[in-house]
Simulated scan of single mutants.
Amino acid sequence: MNYQGMREDNVSVVIQFILMGFSDLSEFQGLLFGVFSIIYMIILVGNSLIIIITRIDNALQTPMYFFLTNFSFLEICYVSVTLPKILMNLWTQERRISKLECAIQMYFFLVLGTGECFLLAVMAYDRYVAICNPLHYPLLMNHKMCICLAVGSWVSGIPFQIGQTWLIFSMHFCGSNQIDHFFCDVPPVLKLACGNTSVNEISIYVATVLIIVTPFMLIIASYSKIIATIQKLPTASGREKAFSTCSSHLLVVVLFFGSAIVTYFRSKSNQSAATDKLLSLFYTVMIPMFNPMIYTLRNKDVINALRKLFLNKTVCGVKL
């Protein structure tokens, strides 16, 4: 273990952590490296494709796809905070991370996670305006408003998460320096802190309510109005078309918010390292991998744009 030295009260202070990750699966390190490498490539390629087609296809120059572009880019940034470090640890078996690096990783993870929560809420609001107030949609969701909502989502977590990260890493860490997790998430890091952590635990609950529960409730309220409006549409085809524009987003919302709420709202006594890792893997790795598939397989406009993109590439290849 790596310690800074002895404080006056003869307690060793940790200045470096060990990310235990999947060290208990020593015989599967090579397999895990291969699996996570493939997942990372799928996330990068899938989300990059969505960004490309929404930028070049004229049919996708709408607020809904503007926010989808932001969401896809946010997903790439989000997984890039954790997955490269996981891959490096699996490849080198060097699991050390300094206290500063750990704090930086946690900060960006929290800021980008906050951005996802608010951007998903903005996307729900966009669908609410489009379906419930279609006549006012061009006025309410003009280009300037879309930019403001997107920028607000990206930066909304910065001041709050600076305070949250500082509050955690201003504490002393003594005893074990082994984080039983694959990245510096709040609950496993807080377990290593010595002294009273009640203030930190209260701040986690407050953050969960403000950053996760509040956007989730706004999304639920938006979709309640959307569903009520869709049911009033006179034709089955109209109802199907309206719901198809929302179903992909709603599925992502349920998966992301469900796992995040369970992770950060569970009581400390009910927390186990294995469950924490499983839940964290789900919303930090698996959901970003599934998102491009969800948005392409359930969205005819995106499928058509992809077909046109690859058809043009094929035609150009034949001509050449």
Rank of each mutant, 00 (worst) to 15 (best):
L90F: 03
T92E: 01
Q93Y: 02
Q93G: 06
E94A: 12
E94Q: 13
R95Y: 10
R96E: 12
I97W: 04
S98K: 04
S98E: 08
K99Y: 08
K99W: 02
L100W: 15
C102F: 08
A103G: 04
Q105C: 03
Q105I: 13
Q105P: 00
F108E: 03
F109N: 14
F109E: 09
V111R: 12
V111Y: 10
L112W: 05
L112S: 07
T114I: 01
G115Q: 03
E116W: 01
E116P: 00
E116A: 02
E116L: 01
C117D: 11
F118A: 05
F118R: 02
L119G: 01
L119S: 04
L119C: 02
L120Q: 11
L120C: 09
M123K: 06
M123F: 03
A124H: 06
D126H: 02
Y128V: 02
V129T: 08
I131C: 04
I131Q: 08
C132L: 06
C132M: 07
C132Q: 07
N133C: 01
L135M: 08
L135D: 11
L139R: 13
N142E: 05
H143T: 09
H143K: 15
K144C: 09
K144M: 12
M145F: 10
C146M: 05
C146S: 11
I147C: 09
I147H: 15
C148A: 15
A150N: 10
A150R: 07
A150C: 11
V151T: 11
V151Y: 00
S153G: 14
S153C: 06
V155C: 14
S156E: 04
S156Q: 06
G157F: 06
G157W: 03
P159Q: 11
Q161N: 15
Q161E: 13
I162C: 10
G163K: 15
Q164K: 15
Q164G: 04
T165I: 12
T165Q: 02
L167K: 12
I168S: 14
F169C: 11
F169R: 10
S176I: 07
S176N: 12
Q178S: 07
Q178V: 14
Q178D: 11
I179F: 07
H181L: 05
H181A: 13
F182L: 09
F182G: 04
F182H: 10
C184R: 03
D185I: 02
V189Q: 13
V189L: 15
L190T: 14
A193G: 02
A193I: 12
A193P: 02
C194H: 07
G195I: 00
N196L: 05
N196F: 09
N196P: 14
N196Y: 07
N196V: 14
S198H: 09
E201Y: 07
S203F: 12
S203E: 08
S203Y: 12
Y205Q: 13
Y205K: 14
A207P: 01
A207V: 01
A207N: 14
T208D: 10
I211E: 04
V213Q: 08
V213T: 14
T214I: 15
T214W: 13
P215F: 04
F216N: 09
F216C: 13
M217W: 07
M217E: 01
I220N: 03
A221W: 09
S222E: 02
S222I: 02
S224I: 08
S224P: 01
I226K: 02
I227M: 14
A228F: 10
A228M: 09
A228W: 05
T229G: 00
Q231L: 13
Q231S: 12
K232A: 07
K232F: 00
L233V: 02
L233R: 15
L233Q: 15
P234T: 11
P234W: 11
